[in-house]
Design a protein around this nucleic acid. Sequence first.
RNA 1: CGGGGUAUAGCGCAGUUGGCUAGCGCGCUUGGUUUGGGACCAAGAGGCCACAGGUUCGAAUCCUGUUACCCCGACCA
Length: 580
Amino acid sequence: MNNGNFPLLPMLQSTLFGKTSKEPPKDATALSHQLLTQGCFIARVTAGIYSFLPLGWRVLKKIDSIIRDEFEQRGIQDLLMPIVHPASLWEETGRAETMKDIIARFESKRGQDLILAPTHEETVSDLARRYLNSYKDLPVIVNQNQLKFRDETRVQGGILRTREFIMQDAYSFDLDKEGMKKSYELMKEAYIAIFNRIGVTAIPVAADSGAMGGSGSEEFVVLAEVGEDTIVICEECRYRANLEKADSLIETIAQDKEMKPMENVEGKGIIGVEALAKHLGVDAKQTTKTLLFQMEEGSLIAALIRGDYDINEAKLKNTLGGIEIQLASPERIKEVTGAEIGYAGPVNLPDSVKIVADNSIKDRVNFECGGNETNFHLVNVNFERDFPMPDFADIRSVKAGDSCPECKKGKLKQENGIEVGHIFQLGTKYSDSMGIQVPDEEGTMRVIEMGCYGIGMTRVMAATVEQRNDDKGIVWPKNIAPFQVHLIGLNLHTDESLKMKAKELYEDLKKSGIEVLFDDRDISAGKKFADADLIGIPIRLTISARSLENGGIEWKERNQEDSRIVAQKDLIKSLTSFLS
RNA sequence: CGGGGUAUAGCGCAGUUGGCUAGCGCGCUUGGUUUGGGACCAAGAGGCCACAGGUUCGAAUCCUGUUACCCCGACCA
C-alpha cells in the first residue's frame, strides 16, 4: 500500500490508475472493445474517441518503439508534423473537396481556415518541395507516429474503427519508378518485421488504392470475424487480395454460333436473377443483369454482369476514373428506363447513359436482359447489333469457390479481416499537384516518385486482442504486453515476513530490468488471479506461504494451463531467457 | 444520410398504467472475521432520474423539443 508515502510506485497494482471491471461495458460488441475496457486499457470519451489509460498506453508505447526501432535499422528518419493544417494546403491537391466528408474543418478565432489532419501527404509534400532540392537528396524516407482525425459518419464500437487514432505514417521520395519500388519493398519488409515482433499475424494482400491514389498497394490484414474487410484467399497458392481488388478465372460458357432475332418475353413480376433463370429455364450464370448507378452530378451508368455475380462498386468506381457512384433510386430508374425496378437492360437506353460491361460477359451471344419495360425481358440480345458496344472491364466481386487467377487451380475462399496497415506506390500524384521536382544528374528537372506507408497503431492493439484471447481475457504477445511479469503476492497483509520477501522479490525483479506489475492489494486470491487473466501479462509469478513451502515461486504462463515452482535463485535467469 | 433502440449512483441494471423517503448487484469507505480461483458480517458514503419546456394539486414516470450514445442499413434489377 502506498500509505501516502512518496515517491508513488506506479508498478504497484494498488496504486494503478483505473480498475478492472467484472462486467463488460454495455454497448460493447467487439470482443477487443469489451476486454480492453474491462481490463482498464482504454476509456471512451465520446463516440470514436478514446483515452488510453496507463496499461493501454504502455502497450501503445511498445508498439511505437518496435516500429521506430525497425525503421531506424533501415535508415528511415523519424520526424513530427502538426495535427492542425491550413486548409490551403489541402486545396492544392484538391483533397479538401474529395475528402470533405471525413475532414474536420474549422475556423480559428482570427478567421484562418484550418483542417484537422486525416493524413499527412500534403504536409510532407510541402516539406519535400522545400528541402529536397537535388537528386543527391534522394532517396529518402521519413516517418512519424502521430494522431489523425477522420470525422467518419459511422463509427464502430471499440478502437477498431475510431475517429481519432494514432497512426504510423511514412513517406518515401525517389527519383524514378525503380527507386520507388525499392523503397516500397524496403517498407514492406519492415512491416513484416514489425508485425512479427508485435506478435500478431498480419498477412499482406493486394488492395485497392482508394482515396490515396497511385498505382499499386497492399494491405496488411489480421483475419478476424469482426473485420470490415473481405479478403479473398487461394487455398492452394499464396494469392491473397482484398475483395475490392480480387480477380478470379472466368469460366467459359458455351455460346451459340449464330445470332438469333431479338425477342420480347413477358415475365410478369419476375424480378431478380433467380426468378428469371427459373422462368427462362436456364442456369443463373447464363443470365445477364443490369444495374444502374448514379454519379454525383446525376447522370447514370448501366453496369452489365453475369447473373450469378455481383458488381463491385470499388472496381466500377475505379473504372470510371474514381468518381463517386451509388445505386440509382427506383424513381430515377423509372425516369430513365421507363420501367419499374427489376426490368433494366442495355437496349434502347438514352445516349446519356454510359454502359460498362464486366469481362464475364464479353463473349456472350444471344443473351437475355431486362427489357426496360415493366414485366418484360429480352432474349437473344447481342452486342453491337442491339445496343452500342460497351466498354469491358473487371467490375465484378469474386465469389467463394471461384478459381484462383494466379495458380489457375486453387479455389478461392473469403474471410473477414481487419486492415492494420496499408502501403502505397503513390507515383507522382502529390508531387505533380504540389510541384515536387529536383534536377537529376544531367540537370533535367524530374518529378519525384512517392510512396506512403501506414499502420493504424491503435487498431493493431485491438486487432491483436481479437486474435489473442481466451474466455478469461487477453493473452498479450510478450513484446507488447503492458508488463513482462505480473507478480502476485498472496496474504501479504497477514504475514509480515512474507510481505517483506515479496517486496524484496519485486525489487530484485525491477533491478534486473524486468517490467513487473506487483499485485500488492489486500483482496482475495481468486480476484487477483481473475484480474491477472483479464489483463493478460505473459508470465504470472505467485509468491505465497504455500509456494515458498513448495520451494520457491509459482510460475505460470498466460497461454499455458499448468504452473510450476521455480526456485528463487533461478528465477531471474529463467525470466531473462523466457523474455529474450 | 435513412431506420430502430437507449439515457436512473463510478459500472451493470430495476422502478415508468402519474403517488408517498428512488431501489438492487458490483465497486467505494470504516470495523471485524476470512485467506490459492471473482469470501462473509455489520455500519456507511454516493443520485438535479441526459437537458429544456409543457400538462398536473403532484412528474424519473405523461406530452413536445433538444442532445448524447449504441445497433442496423446505405448489398443489387
